[in-house]
Simulated assay, not measured.
Amino acid sequence: MTSETGETGLDSLLSVAAGFMAARTLLAAVELGVFTVLGDGARSGARIAAEAGLHARATPDFLDALVALKLLVRDGDAYRNSADADLYLDRGKPTYAGGVLERMGGHDYPMWGSLTGALRSGEPQVATPVASSPASSPAGAGRDYQDGRAWALAPVVEELIARVDWSGVETVVEVGGAGLLTVRLAQAYPGISGGVVHATPEYAENVERLFLTDQLVTYDDLPPADVYVLSEVLARLDPAARDALLARTHGSLPPGGMLVVQDRMVDDGRRRNTAALLSSLGLLLETPAGRQSTTAEAGAWLAAAGFRDVATEELGHGWSAVVGRR
């Protein structure tokens, strides 16, 4: 069957199957520093090859593939970064988010090669899981990865701030989060303060540097607060640990206190949120029992833990929040 654009059903299938080619091309360009080489202006292909260490045979097709992917722009024989690549993939800029792609290339990409084994066994395929939350990233994850996650989460955090009623809130504590929500809330609402549980000091410092504040506090355990935010936490836990954490947050909140669960939750019809469903397969690869829930499932967990007025907020970018009151 052929569409109005001339694409057949087989073309569509092959496009999905070949998606790894475009992904690996982008990841290789980040690894080789191509976008950083072009950070201060256009270069010829030969000059890019010399500075990025490319072989002459590989250079034309590699750079022109990046043009076709809209990551580079070619004018004559000169190449320059696209606007997005220049903003987020030039290591010399404070907005560099390429650390996330470096993690994808070095950890996620090889791990996904084991998906068939995980689908057959139901067992994780990595010896040491790497937490998706930057707050609990291993020490070797690096500042670039942490910064990239902060930039990637920033629009989700802004949407959460806009959609939730923060009136009367004085303290917010994130669990498993980056501290970014706490920082942005303190900037938007001067009466709100708080911090993050189990964040590395290095990550807290990075969030403060990126978002120009020194207000973030880190905690080793769950302190009293008006609001707890569980960011990318419940999906990684087995049911017993999940229910225990929800019971603990409910018991620690004051009457009227709020719990916010934030993650890439699957839509209730389980057919629309591709990012969440693929994220859930990633948890299959990494964890013994983790999976992304639907928003309805998360709401039921909160209700079972005693939370009331449970509601769902769609945050865009494949993310959702489920909110409940004690």
Rank of each mutant, 00 (worst) to 15 (best):
D214K: 04
D214T: 12
Q215S: 14
Q215K: 11
L216N: 03
L216A: 06
L216T: 04
V217C: 04
V217H: 10
V217D: 05
V217A: 12
V217K: 06
T218N: 06
Y219E: 01
Y219N: 01
Y219I: 00
Y219C: 00
D220M: 02
D221H: 10
D221V: 09
L222N: 10
P223A: 09
P223I: 06
P223N: 08
P224W: 07
A225V: 05
A225I: 05
A225M: 04
A225W: 01
D226E: 08
D226W: 03
D226G: 04
V227E: 05
V227D: 05
Y228D: 02
Y228K: 03
Y228G: 01
L230W: 05
S231P: 00
S231M: 10
E232S: 13
V233E: 01
V233S: 02
L234Y: 09
L234R: 05
L234W: 05
A235F: 08
R236A: 15
R236W: 08
L237S: 11
L237C: 10
D238F: 09
D238G: 15
P239S: 12
P239E: 13
P239A: 14
A240G: 08
A240V: 14
A240Y: 09
A241F: 02
A241T: 14
D243T: 13
D243R: 14
D243V: 05
A244G: 11
A244R: 13
A244S: 13
L245K: 09
L245Q: 08
L245R: 11
L245P: 02
L245G: 09
L246I: 02
